[in-house]
């Protein structure tokens, strides 16, 4: 932390928030693993139960995680972001919504990767509802994720949640678009490009 840092340096610091500069996963692992061990030695009954549960979940993870990773990899090389964006603007009405959700379910990567794609689509004139549907599908019905849901929550839970979510997201995206088009775009400096 240089106190005399120039403006661009400060900017870079702001772009990398504090929670990204710490390796949370490794830190947590280094704290939790010994803690669990100590707790298990002190409270042996609970420790045995914790050990059993951890082992069971570990095995369940072991049989599904490699498949999830490979599917992620395959999507990453066979479904490029450019291709997704190309097809996403197209289609109107229900067809457009369904297509957006299907495309959102395909690629991988965390939600924040999808935001720039959504922004580009809006700029290109895609329907607000379609972009919302795309982001929602990306967030909650992505295929590698669903493999995990089937494995851990079971078919009944997964299929029920999936079908309810898809219908609901479709309806809510249309409502969101209706509201979106009725709120004037003031105080929104970030994307004043096409607005007057």
């Amino acid at each position: 932390m240089n106190s005399a840092s120039p403006a661009p340096n400060q900017d870079a610091l702001q772009k990398k928030p504090w929670h990204k500069r710490i390796k949370w996963d490794w830190t947590l692992l280094a704290v939790l693993a010994p803690l669990t061990l100590v707790l298990s030695l002190v409270f042996q009954d609970q420790g045995r139960r914790a050990g059993k549960v951890t082992w069971e979940f570990f095995l369940e993870m072991l049989v599904i995680f490699p498949a999830v990773l490979i599917i992620m990899g395959l999507f990453a090389v066979w479904v490029s972001r450019e291709k997704v964006v190309k097809y996403l603007g197209e289609g109107s009405g229900i067809r457009g919504l369904v297509l957006s959700m299907l495309l959102g379910a395909l690629p991988t990567g965390p939600l924040y990767i999808a935001f720039p794609m959504g922004a580009m689509l809006l700029k290109k004139g895609a329907r607000v509802a379609n972009v919302m549907a795309f982001l929602s599908a990306w967030a909650c019905i992505k295929i590698p994720q669903e493999l995990m849901e089937f494995q851990f929550m079971g078919w009944k839970f997964a299929l029920t949640r999936l079908s309810i979510t898809i219908v609901l997201v479709g309806i809510l995206c249309l409502i969101a678009e209706w509201i979106y088009n009725r709120i004037p775009e003031k105080a929104d400096k970030s994307k004043s490009a096409g607005q007057t």
Binding site: L29, L32, T36, Q46, R49, G51, V53, T54, F57
Partner: peptide, 10 residues
Amino acid sequence: IIIIGLFLGF
């Protein structure tokens, strides 16, 4: 997985 173990065990 460890959190789940702690959770269900303790």
